[in-house]
Amino acid sequence: MNLPALYHSLILWIGDGTGLPDAILHIHAGLAILMIARLLSRRSLGTFIPFVFVVVAELANETMDYLAYGLRWADTLSDLGNTLFWPAVISAGVRLRPMTRKDQRSEQPSDQHTVG
């Protein structure tokens, strides 16, 4: 079984099915992974943990590209930029925003948590 070829046939199917160019698909994928990682990890975007999921997913995608097509720097750099730009901006924006009083209270440790 040729996993890179199978993976790329799925990617081409998605591209053909949506009619969207590769660059737009990377932007959407980066944002979708960011939101899914935020929901599954239950961590704030400001912790950069959801962003790490995007980075890992994009590195895995680029590894599959490398295995299927070899090294193509222009394509790789474009894919990295398109996938990571908005998730990085959103994560940094959330991290740098001033905290509201409610946020500050929720960040303080609470004695009400129980183990069990």
Rank of each mutant, 00 (worst) to 15 (best):
S78N: 12
L10F: 15
V94M: 10
N2K: 09
W86A: 14
I90F: 13
I49L: 15
T100E: 08
W13R: 06
N2S: 15
I36G: 10
D75C: 10
L25S: 00
T18I: 09
M99W: 03
F48P: 04
T63I: 09
L77E: 11
D65I: 00
G116V: 02
G81W: 12
T63P: 00
R105V: 14
D79L: 07
E62A: 13
Y7W: 15
T100F: 07
D111W: 00
M64R: 04
G116P: 00
A92V: 01
P50K: 03
P87V: 00
W13Q: 09
I49P: 01
A57I: 00
V55K: 02
G15D: 08
L96V: 05
A60M: 11
T18S: 14
V89S: 10
E58C: 10
G30Q: 01
L25Q: 02
N82T: 04
S44Q: 11
H28Y: 13
E107H: 05
A60G: 10
R95H: 13
K102M: 13
W73F: 13
W86C: 06
W86E: 07
M64G: 01
Q104T: 01
A68P: 00
F48E: 01
K102A: 15
G81S: 10
V94K: 05
S41C: 11
G93L: 02
A92N: 05
Y69A: 14
R38T: 09
N2P: 10
Y66A: 14
L59P: 01
S91G: 07
W13I: 01
D65E: 14
T114Q: 11
G70H: 08
V54L: 02
L40Q: 06
I14P: 02
